[in-house]
Simulated assay, not measured.
Amino acid sequence: MTSSPKNILIANIRLIGDVILTTPLIALLRQAYPEATIDILVNRGTGEFLEKDQRVRTVIYVENSRKNDGYLGQIFRSYDLAINMNSSDRGNIAVLLAGRVTRIGFRNKGNSLKNIWQRLLLTHSLVFPEDIPVVHHCGVIAKALQIPYTHLTVDVFWDSADEARVNSILNERGVNTPYFVVHPFARWIYKYWRPERFAAVSDAIVERYGLHPVWTSSPSAEEKAGLANAALLCRHQPTLIAGDLSINQMTCLLKRAKCYLGLDTAISHLAASVGIPMVALYGPTFISRWFPWYNPGSPDQVCPQQRGRLQRGNIVVVQKDRECVPCGKAGCDDSGQTASPCMLEITEDEVLAAMAVCLAGPPANTPHLNA
């Protein structure tokens, strides 16, 4: 194990899902170096939820404008151990400037000239492993630091103020019976499913399981309008929580739910983290990397590149069984702005069958993904 650092920086200058799946490393570092302070470097809008994580001292933000590099002065030569969680030059440069003793970063495969500075200037220049669960990157870092571990756990925390906020909204909107959560949005349109199908599945869950529907969205005006319009298609009107909750509060809401239905999005990773039965619909995404992490499972759990209905514990992913799936593209035209046929072909019956499976738990004598 690396000699005990007094201060640690973890950089993950990517999207919110990447940051959520970095939280297992925070736990490993806190356990290995209990006296060290841990700071996190993230894009603005992706890591605010970490301000409620008592294991983290400071969340440092990279502003949306690339010209705003004020954070570099804040981190310069300030850490005994600095870690970049991906192969981006921006993150590796931050680690290079921040780390006094140990500097860990990833580089892409190959021996290109671009990688020379990373190999020479980082104390640990690791080849970025593409086709493994994203959470395993935390394990790769731990092994580089010779930190033993038996679990990798995704955690997002909330406090009493967050609980009070969730309670207030549920009480104000008359949700006083067991509920399920539907989050019918993702960052990109190519990950979308048809709103009328969400409505039909929501109605069927109400009728089959006696649960109250709670539908959620981000604060964006487009999603809030889309949520209201989609809800009008339901026979059993859902309670709408449209952009009213932070990520921490959303996690609290999910923890109390009986089940969850959503897409390939950060909210699905939150649902997985709190352990509720859940169904997520995936299109072209590489499921081998982005299957929601099953916290009770083995730290070496994997999800092979296969299609159809995939299950680990009480997490079920539905992905169409087409030869071109997964392609890893942002839709068939790779623009991200058009619906993917592999998403639109998912049927209501397939989703309801998946929900029945996740609510029942892992079926006996039925193969499912390594747990």
Rank of each mutant, 00 (worst) to 15 (best):
T2E: 10
I8H: 04
I8A: 08
N12L: 13
L15H: 15
I20S: 02
L25T: 05
L28C: 09
A32R: 14
L41N: 03
N43Y: 07
D53A: 07
D53H: 07
Q54I: 12
D69Q: 15
Y71G: 03
Y79L: 01
D80R: 10
L81D: 05
M85F: 11
T102D: 11
G105I: 01
G105V: 05
G105C: 00
N108R: 12
N108D: 13
W117Y: 12
I147M: 01
P148N: 02
Y149C: 02
H151M: 00
V156D: 05
E163C: 12
V166I: 13
V175S: 09
V175C: 10
I189Y: 04
P195N: 12
P213C: 05
V214C: 11
T216A: 09
P219I: 07
K224P: 03
L227A: 08
A230P: 06
I241C: 06
A242T: 10
L245H: 03
L245D: 03
M250D: 01
T251F: 10
C259V: 03
I267Q: 09
L270C: 10
I276A: 06
I276H: 05
M278Y: 03
L281M: 13
P284C: 02
W293A: 01
V302P: 01
C303L: 05
Q311D: 12
Q311N: 14
P326I: 03
C327Y: 07
A330S: 12
D333A: 05
D334H: 14
S335R: 07
L344G: 00
I346Y: 03
L352R: 11
C358G: 01
L359D: 07
P363L: 13
P367F: 15
P367N: 11
A371L: 11
A371I: 02
A371E: 14
